[in-house]
């Protein structure tokens, strides 16, 4: 696959009536990753996925997918799978008929693969979709999306309605497909505590803009939690970009970006690496802080307080 980016947009915007769902959105997601798309409700996650799937058009700017393809173009449609939130398929149709519809509506279709997937989970093809459990319904929509053998699979909140076991089984099936086919995946999720296992690339959206974008390993290496005396906190904050700043009378916790090395602080400070969940929560709480590739990625302590 010569495609180097799966989603690429510079300054894209999408307006619904008078409010902007996405604005000045810059993003370049490289191929070969499992990308988690995170952000509060209304941050623009569904809009971004719909734009990439070609279900809606941008109000300003342009997006390309899988290299230089326009979303919604026949070539892009052939190569992209999309599972909408709640994956609403026809509840009155048996799974077998849903497979038949997929087979007739797609130019690329691997029926055996979908059947193997559903057989392996013991999902009966005669059963009506509406009579399956939530976990089984999710697996059916995943099987349909994967039967296209997509190069890019987009999923909007695939885990939201699933119990813990069904979530595990769903991610297992999804990531096994990644291991076998090497497809790229972008999925939105609120299950922040489960992302560290599954995703290797993180995009955080806030207020219609990209707040954080990067490989998980790089992001985790780039941040340190510093705990030390409040009396010295100002001095530290002057030298290092602070993401989140929590100060009590004597002790302070500063989440800083260090560029992948330990922070140059005095012995009175303890520094720790943090996990993905803590990192994501810190950025969600500080919508004005950002971690982006290139010169746009620089945050300064004084920028953080302005929003």
């Amino acid at each position: 696959m010569a495609t180097d980016t799966v989603i690429d947009c510079g300054g894209i915007g999408k307006r619904y009536r008078r409010s902007w769902a996405l604005r000045d959105c810059h993003l370049a997601v490289p191929a070969g990753h499992v990308v988690a798309l995170v952000g509060p409700n209304g941050a623009g996650k569904t809009t971004l996925l719909s734009l990439a799937a070609g279900l809606t058009l941008p109000s300003e700017g342009a997006m390309t997918v899988l290299g230089d393809q326009l979303p919604g173009s026949p070539r892009a449609l052939d190569r992209i799978g999309f599972v909408a939130q709640n994956a609403a398929l026809y509840p009155g149709l048996p799974v077998r008929d849903l497979l038949a519809i997929g087979r007739h509506l797609n130019r690329r279709w691997d029926d055996a693969r979908a059947r193997d997937h559903l057989d392996g989970l013991g999902i009966p093809l005669e059963r009506k979709y509406g009579r399956l459990s939530g976990g089984q319904q999710a697996q059916v929509s995943l099987a349909l999306a994967l039967a296209k053998r997509p190069e890019l699979l987009l999923l909007d909140e695939p885990l939201a309605a699933l119990d813990p076991l069904a979530r595990h089984d769903f991610m297992s099936a999804l990531l096994t497909a990644v291991a076998e086919d090497g497809l790229s995946v972008v999925f939105s999720s609120h299950a922040v505590n489960e992302l560290e296992q599954s995703c290797d690339y993180l995009v955080v959206l806030a207020g219609g803009r990209v707040q954080v974008s990067g490989e998980v390993d790089d992001l985790l290496a780039d941040h340190r939690m510093l705990t030390g005396p409040t009396a010295e906190a100002d001095a530290v904050a002057e030298r290092l970009p602070v993401v989140r700043d929590r100060r009590a009378g004597a002790q302070s916790h500063l989440l800083v970006r260090t560029g992948g090395v330990d922070a140059p602080v005095s012995g009175g400070w303890r520094q720790q690496r943090i996990g993905l969940e803590e990192l994501v929560l810190a950025y969600l709480r500080e919508p004005a802080a950002s971690a982006l590739p290139g010169p746009r990625g620089a945050v300064r302590p004084n920028q953080k307080v302005l929003s």
Partner: peptide, 15 residues
């Protein structure tokens, strides 16, 4: 095998 680990633990193949 990578595929077995991924299927069993639901973790990223790259891991």
């Amino acid at each position: 095998r990578v595929r077995e680990v991924v299927a069993g633990l639901a973790i990223n193949p790259n891991t």
